[in-house]
Simulated scan of single mutants.
Amino acid sequence: MNQKQILVLALFSLSFVSCSEKSKTGNSKSFTILPVEKAIAQSKAAEVNSMFENVVFIPLETSEKALMGEVLKIVAHNGFYYLYDDAGNLLRFDSQGSFVNRIGAIGKGPEEYGIIADFAIDKKNDFVIVNSLGKLVYYTTDGQFVKTLKSETNEQVMDVDDTGRIFYILPDNAQPASVTSAEAVKVVAPDGTSLKTFTTTKIRHSGLSFFNSISQKEGTMYYKEEMGDVIYSINAKLEKDSVYGFDLGKYAFQEEDFDMSAMEKWKNLYRLDKILIGKKYTCFNLQNGLIGKEICPLFWDGKELVFPYAEKDPSKKGLFINEIRITPMAESNDELVCLAALVDILKNKKSVGIKYKNLKNVNEASNPVLCFLK
Rank of each mutant, 00 (worst) to 15 (best):
G192H: 09
S242E: 05
Y281F: 15
L370K: 01
K237H: 08
L136H: 09
I33L: 15
V306L: 10
L248Q: 10
L9I: 13
A189K: 11
C338K: 04
I6F: 01
K303F: 10
D122Q: 11
L14K: 15
K123W: 04
S315D: 14
A182D: 12
K24Q: 13
G228D: 10
A87P: 04
L346G: 07
S315A: 09
P110E: 14
F299E: 09
A236H: 08
S178R: 09
R271F: 03
H205A: 04
T25V: 15
E311H: 12
T201G: 14
I345T: 04
V230D: 00
E256S: 02
E53F: 08
Y139T: 01
V187T: 03
V55F: 06
N361T: 05
K317D: 12
I129W: 01
I116D: 01
I116E: 01
D247N: 12
F167D: 01
F31P: 13
Q144S: 15
L286Y: 04
T140C: 08
D159G: 09
F52S: 02
P368F: 05
R271E: 12
K124M: 06
L208M: 13
R325W: 01
L305A: 06
N358P: 11
I275K: 07
P368Y: 11
S209C: 10
Y356C: 11
Y281V: 15
D344C: 03
E331V: 12
S315G: 04
N361M: 00
G114W: 03
M227F: 03
M227E: 10
N154I: 12
N54R: 14
E64A: 12
K312C: 02
T201P: 00
S28W: 11
F307G: 06
F372Y: 12
A87Q: 14
N348E: 07
L208T: 05
E218P: 14
A41Y: 01
Q287C: 11
K123L: 05
A184R: 08
A10T: 05
N288S: 12
Y139S: 01
R165F: 04
S315E: 15
T153N: 14
I275W: 00
I214W: 02
A236W: 08
Y222E: 05
I234C: 01
I324W: 04
A117T: 05
L149D: 08
V17L: 09
L136A: 04
G97I: 02
E70P: 05
K350Y: 10
I6M: 12
E112Y: 09
Y113F: 14
K360S: 10
F127G: 00
L34G: 07
E311Y: 11
K357Y: 10
A46V: 09
L286W: 02
G26P: 14
V188I: 14
V55C: 11
A87M: 13
L373T: 05
F127Q: 00
V36S: 07
I33Q: 13
A177V: 13
L60Q: 04
L133I: 15
M158Q: 10
N27C: 09
D344A: 03
E61W: 08
I129Y: 00
